[in-house]
Write a protein that binds this DNA or RNA. Structure first.
Lengths: 122, 122, 122, 122
DNA sequence: GTGGTCTAGACCACA
DNA sequence: GTGGTCTAGACCACG
């Protein structure tokens, strides 16, 4: 038995992922204005530097565009946004399959279970 | 946008889940002897009290049986173990579907994605 | 006439470039140990955080590998190092041609001048 | 490894170089009137004293002629202007070769690279 | 001792 | 007001 506690990813990564989700789900439409670093920091209850780091991450991935003196806005490249959505989905899927595997379920069994659940609730 | 940082579940819960997994996957077969609180606590690097709480949880769920003077052993009720395995799997599944839903995927789409991934890698 | 003063790139970028040069020129051979963040910070006279940022950049580019508790070392991927060397060289070249262009020299004229200088000094 | 940060040349030097470039490229033709110190200072957003120093530099190099009561004008000595253009070009070239040398490229290799780039883009 | 993260607070350039 | 950078100092996990 192995004990690997603490998922504890850095705050800035968690923030980056949440904001990424907000963008790919359309909460912040392509081209729309994004809140200021300071506002977001206050809202999340973190230091502005931490939030800055998260936003820098979103810029690296191409989801946010920054205009130095005029704040940030969501990219207008909808293809990039959709690509990120797929990427996130696959990431979640792999994570799910990984945990199912630990429980002794093969990928096929996991898929069957997922499908059957879909039928139940539809 | 809502920021819900720091999921950080209590340590004893994480430990309980890991030990539960170890049992349902057969690492500790039905009826087998379970390590002592002290040994487990040392191995996990936590306070014995914390480990005690985790084990109490496993007893509540019926996976572990306490024999007053002779330590603990895994239940011989294999049906209960399998039921727990199913329960864990469904829990993971719901968690997965929940996150996919946040990304705008329906249960059906999630199931399709899962199935297609299984084909790719098989 | 246009006045665009101050090249003033951020310190961490300048540091990153200098360290990159040190690696591609072989001052730090592939696989060799790299100084600690704190030592480098003291040596450069900057805050450890600033140096950390520079090193993070070198990791992103794949030149440095970090082993959490054992410090950093130069990548053993010599191809990556050579690729970076070419990239830096092209960057310098473009910068040079850009400035020559401002002086009214075409790329061909700049090339001729470079070639003639090479003959003089050889 | 040696860290030589902050090149930050004095502002008046940067200004002098930019104005020199403007003259050798013909933006200010030989014999033409040159703007007043005050105008230039305002345009560059610097103190008139700073701009004064820059202009003094241009006079030392012979590019600008001061007519006591009538302001400054560009020299009519076109040979001097061309000589300055060559001098600037060689300066840029030497700077370029110096940096390439730091990357481990010989003057010949640098020349070849420059020539090949010219062919690609022409 | 190592790298990594976070906070608090400051300064700068831009418009 | 905006984003960006930098410093100073703290804490943590790891071995």
């Amino acid at each position: 038995m192995d004990f690997n506690l603490k998922d504890a990813r850095p705050i800035w990564q968690q923030l980056a992922e949440e904001m990424t989700t907000s963008i790919v789900t359309g909460e912040f439409p392509p081209g729309s204005r994004f809140p200021s670093v300071r506002d977001l920091a206050v809202q999340a209850g973190v230091n502005p530097n931490t939030m800055q780091r998260s936003l820098a991450r979103l810029e690296e991935t191409g989801l946010l565009i920054t205009e130095r003196t005029a704040g940030r806005s969501v990219t207008t490249d909808e293809a990039a946004i959709q690509a990120m959505r797929q990427q996130l989905a696959e990431s979640k899927l792999k994570e799910y399959l990984e945990e199912m595997k630990k429980l002794g379920f093969s990928a096929e069994e996991a898929a069957l279970l997922t499908a059957s659940y879909g039928k139940e609730t539809t």
